[in-house]
Simulated scan of single mutants.
Amino acid sequence: MTQDLFATLPRTPSAIAIEEGVSLLQAFIDEAEAGALMQAIHGVLQQAPLRHMQTPGGYRMSVAMSNCGELGWVTDRSGYRYQGSDPVSGQAWPAMPEVFRALAVRAAAAAGFAGFMPDACLINRYEAGARMALHQDKDEQDMRQPIVSVSLGLPATFLFGGMQRAGRPLRMRLESGDVVVWGGPARLRFHGVDTLADGEHPLSGRCRFNLTFRRAR
């Protein structure tokens, strides 16, 4: 299944069940909410600027990252982990804006995961040429909690693989305002983002922002 799914569907709000535990909430975020989210993103980044983190193997990630919430996900030569403070500043991560939390709770409920309450939000900025290799989200303590992934700005191709890294992943085109939620039997599926094409979007300029909400502990 390597085709780009949903690339030609109309931009109307719809919940599409990809498989058990996986939903694409297409056009879930309207223009007004998207603007409020971008404003909140800039507020967080004033306190905890984006940075290109390093993997334990010494690889510099092409995606620029920051965090907000009680915990933030970080990677460096010491490994992958959640921690309550920004390793750059030594200060606590910025509080999660209420507009973030409300969206994550609403999206999770729409996908069948009522009661989700995130304590961590990873902010990713993709510029042209940036990508995210296939990986699992497995640093969280409770695998019963879903992942909520929000797309803002330039479109991207989301890669959704199986329980092993090998094999060709499903490809889903994500537009600004789309949300992908996965959990249950799909919680540990490998996933990533294909190389971002150059372009410009009225919301974000020449980049894409992704908000990934998790319950880390």
Rank of each mutant, 00 (worst) to 15 (best):
Thr2Tyr: 08
Gln3Met: 09
Leu5Asn: 02
Ala7Met: 02
Leu9Met: 12
Leu9Tyr: 13
Leu9Cys: 03
Pro10Lys: 05
Arg11Pro: 00
Arg11Val: 09
Thr12Asp: 03
Ala15Gln: 09
Ile16Arg: 06
Ile16Val: 15
Ala17Asp: 14
Ile18Arg: 00
Glu20Pro: 02
Ser23Ile: 01
Leu25Phe: 10
Leu25Met: 12
Leu25His: 10
Leu25Arg: 05
Ala27His: 07
Phe28Arg: 04
Phe28Met: 11
Ile29Met: 05
Ile29Pro: 03
Glu31Ile: 08
Glu31Ser: 11
Glu33Tyr: 11
Ala34Leu: 01
Gly35Ala: 07
Gly35Met: 05
Ala36Ser: 11
Leu37Trp: 12
Leu37Glu: 09
Met38Ala: 01
Met38Cys: 04
Gln39Phe: 05
Gln39Tyr: 00
Ile41Gln: 01
His42Thr: 08
His42Lys: 05
Gly43Trp: 04
Val44Thr: 03
Leu45Asn: 00
Leu45Gly: 00
Leu45His: 01
Gln46Ile: 01
Gln46Pro: 00
Gln47Pro: 02
Gln47Leu: 14
Leu50Arg: 05
Arg51Lys: 03
His52Ile: 01
Met53Gly: 00
Gln54Thr: 13
Gln54Asp: 00
Pro56Ser: 04
Gly57Ile: 02
Gly58Val: 12
Ser62Glu: 10
Met65Thr: 15
Ser66Gln: 07
Ser66Leu: 09
Asn67Pro: 06
Leu71Ser: 03
Val74Tyr: 15
Thr75Gly: 06
Arg77Val: 14
Ser78Phe: 11
Tyr82Thr: 13
Ser85Glu: 14
Pro87Glu: 14
Val88Ala: 14
Val88Trp: 06
Ala92Asn: 10
Pro94Tyr: 12
Met96Lys: 02
Pro97Tyr: 13
Glu98Met: 04
Val99Gln: 07
Phe100Trp: 09
Arg101Val: 12
Arg101Tyr: 07
Leu103Arg: 00
Ala107Lys: 05
Ala107Trp: 11
Ala111Pro: 06
Ala111Met: 08
Phe113Ile: 11
Phe113His: 09
Met117Val: 14
Cys121Ile: 12
Ile123Pro: 01
Asn124Leu: 13
Tyr126Ile: 13
Gly129Leu: 08
Ala130Ile: 05
Asp139Ile: 10
Glu140His: 07
Gln141Ala: 15
Met143Leu: 15
Arg144Trp: 04
Arg144Gly: 11
Gln145Asn: 10
Gln145Thr: 13
Pro146Ile: 14
Ile147Lys: 02
Ser151Asp: 13
Leu152Gln: 06
Pro155Asn: 05
Pro155Ser: 10
Phe160Val: 08
Gly162Leu: 03
Gln164Met: 07
Arg165Cys: 04
Ala166Lys: 10
Ala166Arg: 08
Leu170Met: 13
Arg171Glu: 01
Met172Cys: 08
Leu174Met: 14
Leu174Arg: 00
Glu175Trp: 15
Val180Thr: 13
Val180Cys: 07
Val180Ile: 15
Val181Arg: 02
Gly184Ile: 11
Gly184Cys: 04
Phe190Met: 06
Gly192Glu: 07
Gly192Asn: 04
Gly192Phe: 12
Asp194Ala: 15
Asp194Cys: 02
Thr195Tyr: 01
Leu196Ile: 15
Leu196Phe: 13
His201Phe: 08
Pro202Leu: 09
Pro202Ser: 06
Leu203Tyr: 09
Cys207Met: 06
Asn210Thr: 03
Leu211His: 00
Phe213Met: 02
Phe213Arg: 01
Arg215Ile: 01
